[in-house]
Write a protein that binds this DNA or RNA. Structure first.
Lengths: 245, 245, 245, 245
DNA sequence: TATGAATGAGTCTTCATTCAT
DNA sequence: CATGAATGAAGACTCATTCAT
């Protein structure tokens, strides 16, 4: 952790806050390559002052990231305390995605852990994982999230969602996509057999059947007469073919 | 398009290929900020040679991106010709994700179109969209993809999947996530009501009911006796609880 | 104008001066193509420091040029205040030529305005023109400079003189040439009719006499009483002098 | 001198001519810094071919310069043969200035002899000097050029004139300036006493008389018997003429 | 032999970091 | 202690010259 400078002096603390805020904005708007002097300028401070607080640009970046995580942690704890498990979990994920939207660059950092192993040891990172894990497990106990999902899956999913938001210009459409993606976590979601990927053999397959006409997956219906087609259209089409032959 | 240098000289063409390959690797491994001399070194060439072929680092990047797209286009056309609509579409998406895995940085380029508007006019980009759109529409006609999905949604979804793969270290787990996410496109996928996002009011809600036991969303069944549980397991569980009380 | 860096810090101002001086020397000795690091080396500073003060090599060049002009302006104003019109004007021109001697490259810049239109709007350029024009007009009113000469002619003439000085190795001989050339501006100078140049064909031959007062050339009048003065003003002035003595 | 390549092959000679022409244009339009490939492109040849003919860019430049001189030499010889001394001399100077107009960069080369001592040994340079000197002396013998002018003065003057033309946008005005300047060479021209340079503010006013033989200006001698000749040589020459008639 | 592709030294410019004011 | 000036290593890009085709 960065040694906090002048922890006892009000102005120093205010300066630190200004820097973090300015850095957050700057990274969001101009990417991680934004010059440090630009951050200092936004904060209304000198470059030297920034260095007094953060010995390295890297350190500043980590601090911004940590602050971001802390906000998410607070959000997660609030939701855990106030909502039922399912709402808490999904609400938290939406929070994470939404709040990270303007900070995709931070996600780059998370994604590229090879180049940045240290922050993974940070207290905030650990606490974030704890909160996430607790919410996840609660939701799983409540039956609203598939049992075969782990915290890492959730993190990866949210990272992906942030990317989606970033690449989908239409705001509303982006949100719908995120919704769609997060709902993949629900138990009803069907996982197509994973034969496409060349080298991932051991993916457990749910018991899926497919439309006899269009090969679309059919919902599981343990009882009753099994469906053969995904809908009226396919049934009709199959019929036509049968008659033709 | 970059003027191709030395189209008639075998060595020049070979060098161009070496550069593109080296650049692809370098961008993948070290990010878009990789020095050009590093790319030249990997290609076993001088920096000046790279500049002779690509007048700008940007131009080189675009060429790599274009080549990548061209591979995807070929893959898509092959699948469209050889497979049924559904397999073609989902197989194509998996191809896109898989092949882009080591090239997430290119996705950054796609994502950040504001800063890079020109390539969007490239022939390859247009062709890619055409292929994607054709596959999508075929799959939708076949009933295996939701009707309310457009090409931009699909692109964004794949971009997100690539991010997921990048952030999920476990290879198999990453693939499973991708599978899960892509399956969101299938008509059976349920979209939770989008009330979480502050400002996306107009998301059409499907009429969803939930499992009385586990709260999982249930498929719409307009006719017949409404289902109350998502499956046998839940029905049994509910029964047990009822007996216990 | 270049934003002046560190206006309040003594060392920064001293450094700025060192840079301008070093740049002036470097441009004079090695031409405009002198590497910026060479300038930095001469100034005893780092290249980055030069860039902090002048965002571009161009900007540095302009600053040197402006400083040069400012010196000339000061010289012109001093002379205008202290000397009679004729002495002031010719003295100024000699100053301009002499001081620009080691700075011919700057003249290149002036000459090549097509490639460098902006500095022409500079305050210093305008002021220089003002001073030059004022001195010229005063000298013309005093009768010591031909009436058909404009400021642009004078500038071009001095530019030419600088070139002469540069190409004439012998210092004294160079000065004599300049003297000769500048004296072309005096009314007594004879202009051969310009039949040589393609587009001014008819040359009248010169039996020339001069105004007894101001030495301006008098038109040939083969018959009748020869004129002695170029006009009423000179005749009157001569009369006054005769009466005074 | 550059070894002429393929002197026996017609195409090689044609190529050489194309190169020289292209180089002349390129230097004129884009300055001496024009890339060699640009010259090759203008000539419709490969860069390697240019190098086959001229081992160095410098060598090419010298060849262009030499060709330029050769044209001027031819012009001078033609005029010497066809015109009277005065017309020949001044016509030649106007030719030099006019033809060098688009080639000021070559003049830079002449001006900057420190950096380029070798071409001064070139046959063409020597021949040019010879022609110039002959024309000058003839004109001086004819009494139309001051006796105190040497070949170097004339060269410097023309270099200056080229600069004037370059810096005076108005074509006609430029030509008039050149005329004015070249006429400084005529004996009637008044040279103000050259004490201005460096720091001599009080310009003594000029009551100037001229040498009765060579028209050179005579120094003011307020008292005593007025001098009529600039020196013993002229006095003697005048005496001889008197005796002859 | 002509061509133009390859080379790499050299230039401008940026920016993280240090240090004098 | 805050400031912002100085630093110099590093990166993009150019071009004279060489050399393989």
């Amino acid at each position: 952790m960065t040694e906090v400078i002048g922890g006892d002096r009000a102005d120093a603390r205010r300066n630190r806050a200004k820097m973090l805020s300015a850095a957050g904005d700057a990274f969001a708007e101009q990417g991680l390559d934004v010059p440090l002097v630009e951050i200092a300028r936004r904060a209304g401070l000198g470059a030297g002052t920034v260095y007094r607080h953060f010995p390295t640009k890297q350190a500043l970046l980590e601090a911004v990231f940590t602050q971001h995580l802390d906000e998410l942690i607070a959000s997660g704890e609030r939701r855990a305390a106030q909502s039922a498990a399912t709402e808490a979990f999904f609400g938290f994920l939406l929070d994470v995605v939404e709040k990270s939207k303007r900070r995709e660059h931070l996600c780059d950092v998370v994604a590229a852990d090879a180049s940045w192993p240290r922050p993974m040891l940070t207290a905030s990172v650990l606490r974030f994982r704890q909160v996430l894990t607790a919410l996840l497990h609660a939701a799983q106990r409540a039956g609203s999230v598939r049992a075969d999902i782990g915290p890492d899956d959730v993190v990866a999913l949210t990272v992906g969602c942030v990317s989606m938001l970033a690449s989908r210009r239409d705001r509303a459409a982006g949100h719908r996509l995120v919704q769609l993606t997060l709902d993949s976590l629900r138990p009803s979601a069907v996982v197509t057999e994973g034969q496409y990927f060349r080298d991932s053999p051991d993916i457990r397959r749910d018991t899926v059947t497919f439309c006899a006409e269009c090969k679309a997956p059919l919902m599981v219906r343990p009882t009753g007469r099994p469906v053969r087609y995904c809908g009226a259209a396919c049934r009709q089409r199959a019929r036509r073919r049968r008659l033709a032959s």
